[in-house]
């Protein structure tokens, strides 16, 4: 199943105008500086915001078609979203959070064990660390059995070690899930690490897509690090960040 989105929306400083497509079992990373419209793209796909114009389809189902006046409410889209600030339910324990929309409790338990948070099952989200909360949010999203997974800067609030562990966990699970995963980040390293396809977005427009695609296809060849060594290569990191500066010109 593939997710396809053509989105147009007038924002306060620019007009968002992007086209995305992501196949099942793949991660599409939308990368760009803060305020470039990345989160708005996710919110529109989730149905939390409406586009001024556009079409969003998931497989055969039409979620949005502005010309036909179609707008499927968020709760009917069968998706899950990992929010940047976790958005866990403070009145529920970690286990109940994961079970909130779970199809079965055994899946919730299995996911929690896999992500190493089973021992926190009776704890409230406000009493656990940022990394544990983020793992809870990922488990909650996966336990709901979504047809599309959206991740909004999922690792930005984490320390480098936890961030690395969670990136690896997410990268490992994408093949098993076989659903489109749209991942938004301002960190090019993260996009290169996770993304099967990368869409750079600056001021609401897709910008120099070929550059990151080039980096993606040459990763591990010396021009760009591969998944095993990318985190430790400071020089490459600088080089990539220089590229990002170039976007802003």
């Amino acid at each position: 199943m593939a997710l396809r989105a053509e989105i147009g929306k007038k924002l306060s400083h620019f007009t968002l105008d992007v086209s995305l497509a992501c196949e099942g079992g793949k991660i599409l990373s939308v990368v760009g500086p803060s305020g470039s419209g990345k989160t708005t793209i996710l919110r529109i796909i989730a149905g939390l915001d409406a586009p001024d114009e556009g079409i969003i389809t998931c497989g055969e189902r039409v979620w949005v078609n502005s010309r036909a006046g179609t707008f499927l409410p968020t709760q009917k889209r069968r998706l899950a979203m990992v929010f940047q600030d976790f958005a866990l339910f403070p009145h529920l324990s970690v286990f109940k959070n994961v079970c909130f929309a779970a199809r079965d409790r055994s899946l919730a338990e299995e996911l929690m064990k896999r992500f190493g948070i089973w021992h926190l099952k009776d704890t409230r989200p406000q009493s656990i660390s940022g990394g544990e909360r983020q793992r809870t949010a990922i488990c909650q999203a996966l336990a709901s059995g979504p047809e599309v997974l959206l991740m909004d800067e999922p690792f930005s609030a984490l320390d480098p070690i936890t961030r690395r562990k969670l990136r690896i966990a997410v990268a490992d699970m994408k093949g098993e899930l076989d659903i489109p995963i749209i991942h938004v980040t301002h960190d090019i390293r993260e996009a290169l690490f996770l993304g099967d396809e990368i869409v750079p977005v600056v001021s609401g427009k897709v910008f120099h897509k070929w550059l990151l695609q080039f980096m993606l296809t040459t990763r591990g060849t010396g021009m760009c690090p591969d998944r095993t060594d990318r985190e430790d290569q400071g020089d490459v990191e600088l080089e990539i960040y220089d590229t990002r500066k170039e976007w802003k010109r």
Binding site: T74, R78, A80, F83, A87, F89, A101
Partner: peptide, 22 residues
């Protein structure tokens, strides 16, 4: 926090159910 209400909708709850559960 509005995000938790949005999360409830994303996880499939209608506004009516989200009111009682969140």
């Amino acid at each position: 926090d509005r995000r938790i209400l949005e999360n409830a909708h994303v996880l499939g709850l209608s506004p009516f159910k989200a009111f009682f559960r969140v």
